[in-house]
Amino acid sequence: MAADLEEEEDYLSMSFSEPTESVKETSLQRTARLKKEAAERSRPLSKKERAEKGKATRDAALATQIDASNKGAQMLAKMGFNGGALGKSENARTQPIEVLVKDNRGGIGMDSEKKRKLRDAAEEVVGQEKKRKVGEEEFRLRARDEREERKNEGQMWSAMRTLESFETGAFDEGDDEDGGEDATKTKDAASSRPLKSINVLWRPLVKQRLEKERKRRARHDLDQSLSRRADYDDPDADADDKLALGTEVEEQLDDEDAELDEFEALSFVDRLEKILEELRTEWKYCFWCKYRYPDQEMEGCPGTTEDEHG
């Protein structure tokens, strides 16, 4: 996955390496280049360019310390100077005072105010950029996780259905795990049983079906009766009324079911693992091989995980 990401980034990157020029300049090219450079040099500079050039050379010189090859530096070294500051006082300066040429009439604090504003603006831009970048990265990671989750969930439901078909006896070798008519038949059978009696490993499947059915009915009721909304709670209605109206079903579904809650608190992967374990031990069936082995040895099955099944 990580490798994928890197590839993706590389793909987005704008930089690309260029093969280095190794061709030698011909004498003609050289003459042309020199001519061009000479022309550039002799071109009269505009006032602005001159000022900029002057400032640039000055700033460069101001930033360059006098080096040890300087005659004065050598003389000072001979006098016993070896770095640091002169004199005997503490905190003596080692650098010359900065030269700042003021070229406007801005008051004290104006320059730093301008700088501060500029910095704030720059920081804001950088901040947004960063936020955006973080977002991209996060999105990519989240999307990956979600994909994984969806896959696991799908596999879990699929395994549940397989288990259901085994337990209800609807399993048919070679049949698709969410088999057609048989499945419908088994569903009906399951819905007639009390929910808590069903194996917790596939109980969610039944519960889901019941909930779907209830919603459908509620919608149907709403369509049939304009006078009563499904979610309307009539204080005068007694238990019988409620049962008659079909609202009682809800109570049944919402009943405390600690076993189911516990199971559903597990992650999809863990739930899937439990179901597959049940399938293997109880039914000698491998979800990955899609094959029911004749004995507990399950000879021919490469392992218990999806990866082992390549």
């Binding site: 000072l76 006098m79 016993g80 100077f81 640091g84 500051a85 002169l86 004199g87 005997k88 006082s89 003596a92 300066r93 080692t94 650098q95 010359p96 005072i97």
Partner: peptide, 11 residues
């Protein structure tokens, strides 16, 4: 080099 000035200049 070691002349004791109140504020020695930069070397």
């Amino acid at each position: 080099v070691h002349f004791d000035l109140m504020d020695p200049p930069a070397p």
